[in-house]
Nucleic acid binder design. Structure first.
Lengths: 208, 208, 208, 208
DNA sequence: AATGAATGAGGGTTCATTCAT
DNA sequence: AATGAATGAACCCTCATTCAT
């Protein structure tokens, strides 16, 4: 009996992971409106099994976003420790975040899906903290201009790495160019004064 | 009699313009698959009226994209003439393009609906030509790094100015910051070598 | 003033006729659900003009059917007078009715549209009377089997000459073969006893 | 376990059959453009259930047509064997075909959906073959006139058995009369020469 | 726990009919 | 009288979600 229960749980866990992986793929390909039946198909499970593990599409999206944020926060923390030059670390972080498809998978994080969702809030706080520390170190090293904020960086990465709408191409060839140009613009000394002010949480939450 | 004819046409023309304006907004918010019923709702007309003016979603999208491209090409050409410093002209262009949402709308619509559509092709060629001239002038003035291409600029503007998904906030406060940072990265001398290569039309068209 | 009024009425009459002619064509091509905008287009008038002349699609259909029935009744009456052999007259009538497209245009008459519509009722009565006289004469001449009724003939003609659904071909090549075979079956002496009973008005009216 | 599996399948199978039956009726009444929502309504299922079982209207139509053709081809083959007199067999076949609505459904569906559809082609060939053998036998027995072709018979059955448009009456009482008259016309010796030529597949396919 | 089946709601598009000029 | 424009309702099809086994 116990064995059976254990075996079932192992199967279920495996299913859960396959669904998450499939969801990542499918969300990347189809965008936020991806058909969940396609997720189920690729995970090799029945459609209803997706719902057993994730109450609805929001729940699934949240968990995918959370796992992506978590991985990126890991990287930020590791780079802060391992990379001697903090500005180089920041630059490397930007490119690695792109490779994790933060732009494709986490816009839902900054937006509607995340409204008051504690897990995302927690992931965001952790990620933002790690990036803030990276930026602080870079700023102290004198290579990062001091008129920018974490929000500026996070949103710009997210935007620059978002899939081109309607175009399912591999963007890696040029995304890293754009990120490189953007990071060049972050380097001190500032080449121009910045207008406006940084993105705030209220901006992300929107007005409705 | 003439008055009557004019007035009828005026009503229809006004509807047409309201639909175009609504479509601009809705396409920005929802992407190329935006519900046309929402366009109709915002334009304050019945859904079928949209179809009276635009045979299908492609026709509507093409006309929206064309009008945006046209307006922004106008600006590029004017700036090239009126602004004494070509790099300043380029910077001004980037900010003005953001105000016209050219970046957000056009790549999306061109990618989705532009296949062999002569009106879009013509608009794209004209816009790209104007921007190329701006960049060429800036490059000759020595202030624009010479390892970037028109495609890099156009797509980066596009991405940085796209609405945050699900968030209906006014982005102008921080979009111009991000653009400013990006343009700072474009200034000569280049602060880092660029990886990859520029975006091509084939990229926009996607792989399927 | 009077002249203007007369001229207008003449124009209107001409429009009415053009609409009827166009409706005949379009009903033949598209069936009973033909788009009225197409009728307007072929008549060379605005769509609303169709509605000025015919309150709705039923009104238009009724008038078209009435005119067809009228023409066919004319032919039946003429054949009764002019053709020496009454069975030959009946056979000729069947083929001429096909040429008038009675099968294509009048099923809507015998059906939905005609419910309690006095003009159709009148047209039907007149046509049925003329055909009954033809059949009576043929029966008296000894060449028409005497176990069939007007309803049998009218419905069979209508059915055999209806357009093949979904197929917009010219049926004249084979319709007349089928009619010929059917009329051969009407000739006395009867080659087999007939089952059932003839079509009644109640049948045509349906049960709902 | 097996029971469970069987029961699930039994439910679905039952729905499938109810949909097919409803489709048969609805296609008869409304033609090839029948609203599938009406099919669903009569089958007592949700509209999407129709699409779960049949990918699109073509698939549904094809399966309906195929099943009808199959059943009636069975009958033709059985009659050829069991009925001693081949002309009587042919006459019986005509009446049985009417009961299966083969005439009304199949030409319609073949014409509209049969283009290069192997299942329909196969069904049509089988049915046509069986009828051809029936006719050939009847012709050899000397009771069938020899100037008619399979196409003549099939299309005439089709036309004579189609539901009266807009009238939901039970036609069996008089349809068999009309068929009987038509078959009387097929009997040798021919009472009149036939004009035109037989229906071809190209006729069914129409000109556009 | 897992699943195939069922479903209702939503968006695109067409068309009969009405409105305003 | 005539018309172009507007509209809402209908139908197709897809998909997120629920149900029953």
């Amino acid at each position: 009996m116990a064995q059976i229960a254990v075996k079932q749980r192992a199967d279920a866990t495996r299913n859960r992971e396959r669904i998450m992986a499939a969801a990542r793929e499918v969300l990347l390909e189809y965008g936020a409106d991806a058909p969940l039946d396609e997720v189920a198909r690729r995970a090799g499970v029945g459609n209803a099994t997706v719902y057993r593990h994730f109450a609805d599409r929001q729940e699934l999206a949240i968990q995918v976003a959370h796992s992506v944020m978590d991985r990126i926060a890991d990287r930020a923390e590791r780079l802060l420790i391992e990379e001697p030059d903090p500005f180089d670390a920041l630059r490397a972080f930007v490119h690695e975040a792109a490779d994790e498809r933060v732009g494709a998978l986490c816009p839902m994080l900054v937006a509607r899906f995340g409204q008051g969702e504690p897990r995302l809030e927690e992931g965001r706080v952790r990620l933002q903290g790690a990036v803030a520390r990276l930026m602080e170190a870079a700023r102290r090293s004198g290579r990062l201009r001091d008129d920018i904020d974490v929000g500026d960086l996070m949103v710009a990465i997210s935007q620059l790495t978002r899939p081109l709408p309607g175009s399912h191409c591999d963007m890696s060839r040029f995304i890293h160019r754009h990120l490189q140009l953007f990071v060049d613009g972050l380097e001190a000394p500032a080449r121009s004064p910045l207008p406006g002010s940084s993105v705030t949480l209220e901006d992300l939450r929107g007005r409705d």
